[in-house]
Design a protein around this nucleic acid. Structure first.
Length: 491
DNA sequence: TTTTGGGG
């Protein structure tokens, strides 16, 4: 544009910018923290970030950028990327400098990759006609890239007094968590997405929330027997084998039309200021208006720590066990296959072969039927006769157990001879005529379910063997079922 | 035009 005078911008080092409270400034910076656009109580969306440069490396400058639409605010892909702002307002908040931008007051931005040797074309900018990058701009960007390559930006990310791992979450307080997004589902008529997040650790067994009580007379069994996660098995197959997958409800962050800008599967994020609740005996993360979704680089220390710890877990027989089961593990159930590696229930659920055998460390959350009186049913060939005319030998155990470990819940069947072996000394019978057997069964089942005189149930960790099978050989995966075998409850 | 949120 030789015949038009080009506006010349001067860029202020951050150390100087923070001295110019009340003025509008232009600056370049390296993004050290970035939180996704989210709704505000006002008309605009807000995205926040911390930028640094060689003059102002720590703690960096907080930038708040408001805009009515997501596309009008900087969409930073990775920490360490370079950002340029024009006409951004310097302010002070509680003694700390901060900058606010808003297209309404003429603010504009351009974001470029942060890696050395990268090009000088912004991958996102606010100008309709494309923004200008001159030789002086390339110089600044190059200097920042070189400087950033020798200054890990990671020091800020992943540390706060609120930081928790998934194994330590509880309903009592708000917290932060660094985690990987495994899956984001659209579901329900409200089109509410659910995010499923993971950090390689195991959530503790949740106490049944009093507000989570079922209204039926059944003491909570129905809740406990609910299957987990509305995640298709094919999706779950892509999940890591171990570690809790925590569902996260972002709807509390929404404001009328806008939800938060959600990350996608595979991203690592730092969730800030989130809560937790218990639904059907399982933890669920909850975002609220004050929550934030910050991005993390795969190279971030927090991410590396998660991945390294997880690799260690995978490789160690002892660390593979649920993190909340007693060490060394003890079990009131006995299996004959103690040398066999323990599988997590997610591995059982996603195993590629449909007929297979596993050993698991689980808790028995519920039985169905819930009354041991109904544990035995007439065999098929006797079903036509009145129940009272049947011989004892005409009955068979048919019980469904809900098993839980930190990775999944699973319905398994305890049937026939496997059940007779399991209950040791309690043959199948018309239990309505077998008071003694019923008493023995009831005591065993109560111990399995962790029933106590008063207070919430707390099922003990037990080892058990499972085998998978199918009902229809033409559709083995669709009709896969699981049975307990090779497992005894002596005493 | 000047909010919103501003780490808790």
């Amino acid at each position: 544009m030789p015949n038009r005078e080009r506006r010349k911008y001067s860029y202020t080092p951050l150390a100087e910018a923070v001295m110019r409270v009340g003025q509008k400034v232009n600056f370049y910076g390296v993004v050290a923290e970035y939180e996704q656009p989210k709704p505000t109580r006002g008309r605009d969306l807000l995205c926040t970030m911390t930028v640094i440069d060689m003059s102002y490396n720590s703690p960096g400058l907080r930038v708040l950028f408001f805009a009515p639409e997501v596309d009008m605010m900087p969409r930073v892909r990775d920490l360490g990327d370079v950002i340029r702002f024009h006409r951004i307002q310097m302010k002070s908040h509680l003694g700390a400098p901060q900058a606010t931008g808003n297209p309404n007051m003429g603010s504009s931005f351009a974001v470029l990759r942060g890696c050395e040797g990268g090009d000088y074309v912004p991958y996102h900018d606010s100008s309709r006609s494309g923004c200008t990058v001159e030789a002086s701009d390339r110089n600044i960007v190059g200097l920042l890239r070189t400087w950033a390559s020798s200054h890990p930006i990671d020091t800020l990310a992943g540390t706060s007094k609120y930081m928790k791992q998934i194994k330590d979450v509880n309903v009592d307080s708000y917290f932060d968590v660094c985690c990987k997004i495994l899956f984001v589902s659209e579901q329900g008529a409200e089109n509410n997405a659910v995010m499923y997040v993971w950090d390689g650790t195991d959530a503790s067994p949740a106490c049944l929330d009093p507000s989570d009580q079922s209204e039926s007379g059944d003491p909570g069994q129905e809740l406990w027997s609910a299957k987990q996660l509305a995640v298709p098995v094919d999706v779950m197959r892509g999940f890591p084998a171990l570690g809790t997958v925590l569902p996260l409800d972002p709807s509390g962050m929404a404001d009328d039309d806008f939800g938060p800008q959600l990350p996608v599967a595979g991203d690592w994020v730092k969730l800030r200021n989130i809560g937790c609740r218990v639904r059907k005996g399982l933890y669920e993360g909850v975002l609220h208006h004050g929550s934030k979704i910050g991005i993390l680089s795969p190279s971030a220390q927090a991410v590396q720590n998660c991945e390294r710890a997880y690799e260690e877990r995978l490789a160690s027989d002892a660390l593979r066990l649920p993190q909340w089961c007693p060490q060394p593990p003890q079990s009131i159930l006995v299996t004959g296959y103690d040398h066999v590696k323990v599988s997590a229930l997610r591995e059982v659920l996603t195993y590629p072969e449909v007929t297979y055998k596993f050993r698991c460390m689980v808790r028995v959350m519920a039985t169905w039927p819930s009354d041991v009186l109904d544990f035995c049913v007439p065999k098929d060939d006797g079903a036509a006769q009145p129940r009272d005319h049947l011989e004892q030998g005409d009955f068979v155990f048919a019980v469904r157990l809900t098993l839980e470990d930190p990775t999944a819940r699973l319905h398994v069947f305890l049937y026939g001879e496997d059940a007779v072996e399991f209950f040791v000394g309690c043959p199948a019978a018309n239990l309505r005529h077998q008071g003694h057997t019923v008493g023995v069964l009831k005591r065993k089942v109560d111990r399995l379910l962790g029933v106590t005189e008063h207070g919430p149930r707390n099922p003990p960790w037990v080892t058990c063997c499972l085998k998978s099978y199918y009902l229809d050989k033409d559709h083995p995966r669709e009709t896969r079922r699981y049975r307990v075998f090779g497992t005894r409850f002596p005493g």
